[in-house]
């Protein structure tokens, strides 16, 4: 079970309190009607699914209820950073 830091509650809480929300930074177009079929299909269904660092959404469902984003390594499950919804994906110091 992961320990996840909620950037709103500002504390680490057990994974049981959270719900996974898929890849982060998948932006819904402001005017979907202007998007072509191909691009819209990609928006709906295609995700990067990387082996390694992944920006993903989580929701503190059984806590503050807020959505936030998280950089996690999909191989080791290590969580590098969590950040509030709307903030840009942080650059990790290598």
């Amino acid at each position: 079970m992961l320990l996840i830091r909620c950037p709103y509650c500002e504390m680490e809480r057990p994974e049981l309190e959270f719900r996974y929300g898929g890849e982060a930074h998948v932006v819904r177009a402001a005017e979907p009607e202007t998007i072509g079929d191909e691009a819209w299909g990609q928006f709906l269904y295609l995700r990067s699914n990387p082996k390694g660092l992944h920006a993903e959404r989580w929701r503190h469902t059984n806590g503050c209820g807020r959505f936030f984003n998280c950089l996690r390594d999909t191989v080791t499950d290590r969580i590098f950073v969590t950040y509030k919804a709307g903030e840009p994906r942080p650059e990790l110091a290598s």
Partner: peptide, 13 residues
């Protein structure tokens, strides 16, 4: 409710 919260918080804040 989760679906509504999702859109309210992340798409239409």
């Amino acid at each position: 409710l989760a679906h509504m919260e999702d859109y309210l918080q992340t798409e239409f804040p």
